[in-house]
Write a protein that binds this DNA or RNA. Structure first.
Length: 576
DNA sequence: GCCGTTTTCGGCCCGACTGTTTTCAGTCG
């Protein structure tokens, strides 16, 4: 069984958590977590890296001889002895306690040692029975906090889709802006890095009167609870469940604060290490040489002071962006303005809510050169998929419409289902007649990986296929994607000239950032498509561009930045 | 546990807030 990067990372992280409960050296714990992050961010299967060369693993930064051995052991056996030893020593139930806010390893350890608490259930019972008294370091406030955390843990930890987070965030900003004396105001954190989901909002403000800003912040009408309130920092939970942190800094620290609160954490650590190597200190107040601040007002100033060009927030993940920046090889990320058309959309002919004509007008209003209409094939019964006759009739209407349109060209296409055996849901002649063929999976997501891979490979090799749409089929927070061998699929796609979609639907964003980058590394071209089911859905493009940017995509990597004539050369009609 | 234009040993990013302390540890980001 091949060990997925995600699985290797999970085990390394578990080992780090258990070591922390054991009270191990913090830097050793960090080494495990760092290695976990390196592995899960690595664009190719780490198992292949290990098999390719003896020193392949230790070439990865943060992985030395010891961890390389453990990773090889995971690939071989699915675990490693040190982890098994830790699992024997430390009750696994303690790990779930670490998920409670305010409960860290030391407190978990105390609860275990002093009261024999080994799980969330034990903690709940102890709180109910009032047996958590008389423990040094645990007073009434801590007991209250634990009780609240346990009660809230019934509801699962939530991350919000980016557009949802945007709505809560923008409303809060509008409220805060109503206050005089606020100079700068911005949402930093993963929101600014444009991650597909956001766990909490990190709001940065600069103002002379920090106390006033904090007073206004904690009085926001949507506040359900104030979880921290100090002189420069406060935190609230909104009624929606969204956590918001606010930090107020002086104006001369705005750039340093923005840099710091944008993260990612791993990126910050790397940047601070760089500053340190140059005899400087970087914190949220500025760049310091000794007691003297030498930069801080803008990000550009801060980056310059530590010897870096400004790196786009989307790629600040410590996935090689600092090395790329130092070599002058930062990607010139694709921009919304680069997009010249949309290559997946639906109309009332299948499950769309707007007509062909309405979709065309909306695409034209966006200034697009082309819109591919790709209604469903028959297998998607709930979507009212079209058969060959239905597509033929639609084609005639598209041809007539194209005769009337001035600036926009409608490409006649289909989103064709990949059936369980990897065959396609329309006959070859029908497929060959389309301008563009998108294939995708809408059923049987849970086939065993080997079978799923075989299925997808067969579909990709069909000569009429242009684009593999929402490849994994994941729905964020609701459904895991199909578990095929992504890299085998990328190689086949490269061999057959098939492009990979970054689907811009906020709950898909599939390929994700890491897979999109891996696809580019395989020499594949991406497309960013909205999969619009209405005219307003065409506006999803921005979320797709964000995700592609996180995958280091440049305009040249994205087919729908091309003018129509050049795009057509990539499609099956001219490929054969 | 990792790593080296200061180092193969001795460092490892940095600061705010809370609660329970009598000067700071734990947690979080």
């Amino acid at each position: 069984m091949p060990a997925e990067n995600a699985e290797i990372a999970r085990l390394l992280r578990e080992a780090g958590d258990l070591l922390e409960l054991e009270g191990a050296n913090p830097f050793r714990i960090r080494a495990y977590r760092n290695a976990a992050r390196i592995v899960e961010n690595h664009p190719e299967p780490v198992q292949e890296v290990a098999e390719r060369a003896t020193d392949g693993l230790t070439d990865l930064p943060g992985i030395g001889d010891d961890l390389a051995g453990k990773i090889r052991e995971i690939c071989r056996s699915g675990t490693f002895p040190a982890l098994e030893e830790l699992r024997r020593k430390i009750p696994g139930g303690l790990l779930e306690l670490l998920n409670l806010p305010g409960l860290g390893p030391k407190l978990a350890r105390t609860l275990h040692d002093q009261r024999g608490i080994r799980s969330l259930g034990d903690l709940k019972a102890a709180l109910d029975q009032g047996t958590l008294t008389g423990i040094r370091g645990i007073g009434p406030k801590t007991r209250d906090k634990l009780a609240q955390a346990v009660a809230a843990s019934a509801g699962v930890e939530r991350r919000f889709l980016r557009p949802i987070a945007a709505q809560y965030g923008e409303a809060l900003l509008a409220y805060l802006k109503g206050m005089r004396g606020i100079e700068n105001l911005e949402i930093a954190g993963s929101y600014r890095r444009r991650k597909d989901t956001v766990g909490d909002l990190d709001v940065l403000a600069t103002a002379g009167d920090a106390a006033g800003v904090i007073r206004r912040f904690v009085s926001y009408p949507e506040v359900a609870a104030v979880t921290a309130e100090g002189t420069t920092r406060a935190a609230i939970r909104l009624r929606s469940g969204m956590q918001v942190d606010l930090r107020v800094l002086p104006d001369e620290s705005y750039g340093a604060g923005l840099y710091y609160f944008t993260g990612s954490k791993a990126h910050n650590i790397a940047a601070r290490r760089m500053a340190q190597a140059g005899g400087l200190k970087l914190n949220e107040y500025g760049v310091w040489r000794g007691e003297r601040r030498i930069a801080g007002r803008t990000e550009a100033e801060v980056c310059k002071a530590i010897g870096l060009p400004v790196i786009p927030p989307e790629i600040r993940e410590d996935r090689g962006e600092i090395e790329a920046a130092l070599k002058g090889r930062l990607p010139r990320l694709v921009k919304p303005d680069d997009i010249r058309g949309d290559l997946q959309s639906h109309t009332t002919d299948s499950d769309g809510r707007d007509t062909l004509e309405a979709m065309a007008r909306a695409a034209e209003a966006l200034g697009y050169e082309y819109l591919a209409v790709t209604d469903h094939s028959p297998a998607v019964r709930v979507a009212g998929g079209l058969d060959r006759g239905g597509f033929r009739k639609q084609r005639a209407r598209i041809d007539r419409l194209n005769g009337r349109l001035r600036k926009l060209t409608i490409l006649a296409g289909a989103e064709v289902d990949i059936l369980a055996d990897g065959s396609l849901d329309l006959d070859d002649r029908t497929l060959a007649a389309f301008d563009v063929v998108v294939i995708s999976i809408h059923s049987r997501f849970t086939l065993p990986a080997k079978e799923q891979t075989r299925r997808v490979l067969r579909a990709i090799r069909h000569p009429s296929v242009d684009i593999f749409g929402h490849p994994t089929g994941r729905l964020i927070g609701r459904r895991e994607g199909a578990g095929f061998d992504l890299h085998a699929v990328f190689e086949a796609a490269a061999d057959h000239g098939v492009m990979l979609e970054v689907n811009a639907q906020p709950e898909r964003l599939d390929l994700d950032d890491i897979a999109a980058r891996a696809a580019i590394d395989h020499g594949l071209r991406l497309v960013i498509s909205t999969d619009a089911h209405s005219t307003t859905d065409l506006g999803f493009m921005r979320w797709g561009v964000d995700q592609a940017r996180r995958g280091w995509a440049e305009a040249k990597n994205v087919a729908n930045t091309l003018p129509l004539a050049r795009l057509r050369k990539l499609l099956h009609g001219s490929r054969a």
